[in-house]
Design a protein around this nucleic acid. Structure first.
Lengths: 231, 231, 231, 231
DNA sequence: AATGAATGAGGCTTCATTCAT
DNA sequence: TATGAATGAAGCCTCATTCAT
């Protein structure tokens, strides 16, 4: 499976461990970890501006003042949670020597999609709360918004465009559909599934493998190359 | 075009006018209107809990106390903005004698999709800020969440299921794709467009007609009937 | 019975009627009356400073502004309720040509006490709420405090002193007990009854006549054992 | 003297010290003490609902927010002042092994009365302001009212009834006067003195010992003419 | 005369942040 | 390093009072 080709989370690292450091060495006292954990909990439940640092401190089992030893302000605490998450969101594209499409490890678009969906579903499941915070706060935090636009909308679009055109050339994607639309359809479909799966109907008894297959079929037929449509 | 068949917003009524009253006669003083307008502005910019009633008052050009003559609490103000919006979100499905699919005014799924997209794009464009507030606050306001689940996830899913199966019977949608998945794909694709169009890249010079066509093509081919797939 | 000798409330005049006018001709619109009534209700229930003029207006069935046509301020409203009540509290002593003790209409102290108790019990029962307000607010309203000290503690003490010494001379009250103490004992006993009767245990099934007799006996003879009384 | 038999306040403990703890060890920072002191002052002067927390803070020399570190709400602050006071009001009756009347340490009713008056006068003098607040607020604070009815009107009446009947059996109180009336007369007379002494004429140069004697004589023998007293 | 919309001062309370210990 | 008492700005809300109608 292509899954392990892109996965940045194969190991069972605690997300917390990875927050401030991807590859870098991170020093985190247990207190700091519990502060982060508690902050994620409270931010995700109440929303950033309704979250009280006192509640975070209490949930973390530290004094109120202690939080401010590690994070100068409450906003600092927020950014130190969601900032790194943004990095991880786009990890599959920017990590490693993924510069060109030359080293694209997937033969078919379908394989790429499947690997991507499996991987991002896993990621989203694991960091559900942080992603919630991120999505909720992006509109109100200029710092986040900017980082999001630059990194995600910038970096990723660029790479995904390359990938898409790579598969267009291979004839797997209809050249009649503009690349941005292809990306939009693909992303919509995948995120649509993640949303339904994790946010809207988390209680429903999902068969992930089947749903992923269905979703990929939908994407492929929707944007299938001329051969597909001509037939 | 099927557009005018579903549209509940053909006329140019100010949204504000319609907030508390659909069909009913509404009495709103200019001051109350400006309070609502200002509240929409500020809630949408800052988020509910970061919005100060003092700022709303200032922007509305009234004394802070005046707000509380019209709305008992700040939360009341929020609900009186987003509550009615929720009603309008699902209006195309629940308004009128839309009980069965018998009176479905569209011959083809494509027509239905186009009418729906055009109509909802128009609606979302007009009430963009309110929808932002709504989406932002649903996770944190139990009252909203409940109303959303009951009305939107309840009412709408039910009706859309009926519609979908109607077109399945007509052979326009592959019977091999489970109805929930069809709905998910359709909704994802449409909302994906709305999101990209209005939220992510509002500055881009969109050709709505063309994009809508593309999106519909994508949906149709993705979930196309057996003929398409069999070929 | 001496009751009707002192009573200033023999007739069934509505208290409201008499508020602003004792003997004077009073002009009160129905609106003003209902404002007063409502104010008495609300002040007595919530206390002056916790009473909202809006609630008074609502209960009176008038607009908020109307109150301020009749009473310049909320405090004015209070004073116009409790001020006249103060006058009535001491009415038995100051009304009429009660200048000397010459016209004291009672032969014995016992008769005086009985008449007084019956009369004041009736009065307190009728104006219970107003008296509550008065007692609650005297400590916090300098205007009331002053009026109370001047009128009640001044006027009344003076007259009651005369009465007491009148009965001392007649040998009905021990000359060994200083007059202020006699007054204190008498007043304590009577008000003790009123308090228990109306405020502390209003639900108890009181036999007023018997209790009044007992109280008078107590004032006159104390509660000493049978030996004492027998002698 | 029986005084020291009942007194729970012989020592000069600051009331403040004893507020939250009778017998228990209490931890109170100087700031908390000054908040309580200031609150007692302001509540007593202005009444609870007219007292501003800002004024209390100012008088206590702390920031307004500091009050709310110690007391969650303004009402909490009130209750933490008057609640314990209620306990102390009835302390002479409920503290210690005062279960039966067997251990009644007084031979004669007169001794009991004197001890009680001296003790409660001392208590009332010391906690004058708190008692003022208590009496003012009982009618408006359901929590207080309930506690008052249960503890004071319940507990105390029961015990005092026992005491009274004890002395009736000893022939010191006329068995012809119903016990509730005896209690009422006694309490009225004593509280009448406290009221006059501390509230109505605090400036007057009182001779407490003599007045207490007089009051006790009154309770025992009334103010009947010379015939009675001559015996 | 009566209304009630509008005001704005002031009340209670929360909370991010500081700082002495 | 960690604490948590203390702060005070700012938030939401109430309410007596005014004034145009």
């Amino acid at each position: 499976m292509g899954n392990d080709k892109t996965g940045e989370q194969r190991n069972g690292d605690l997300w917390i461990e990875g927050l401030l450091a991807i590859g870098r060495d991170q020093k985190m006292t247990p207190k700091q970890k519990s502060i982060l954990q508690a902050a994620i909990e409270v931010f995700s439940e109440k929303g950033y501006s309704s979250a009280a640092t006192s509640e975070i401190a209490q949930k973390a089992g530290v004094a109120e003042g202690t939080i401010f030893r590690y994070y100068k302000t409450k906003k600092d605490l927020l950014l130190s949670i969601v900032g790194p998450a943004m990095g991880q969101m786009i990890a599959p594209f920017v990590l490693r020597n993924f510069n060109g499409v030359l080293d694209m490890p997937f033969e078919r678009y379908e394989d790429f999609l499947r690997a991507f969906m499996v991987n991002r579903l896993e990621f989203a499941r694991k960091h559900f709360k942080i992603l919630r915070i991120l999505i909720q706060e992006i509109p109100f935090q200029p710092a986040l918004k900017e980082q999001f636009i630059e990194n995600v909308l910038g970096q990723v679009v660029e790479r995904v465009t390359a990938i898409t055109e790579h598969f267009k050339e291979k004839g797997e994607i209809s050249i009649e559909v503009p690349t941005p639309a292809v990306i939009r359809f693909t992303v919509s479909s995948i995120f649509g599934y993640l949303l339904a799966r994790l946010l809207l109907f988390p209680e429903y008894d999902w068969n992930d493998a089947a749903e992923i297959d269905l979703t990929i079929q939908f994407i492929l037929h929707g944007i299938g190359g001329p051969a597909l449509n001509a037939e």
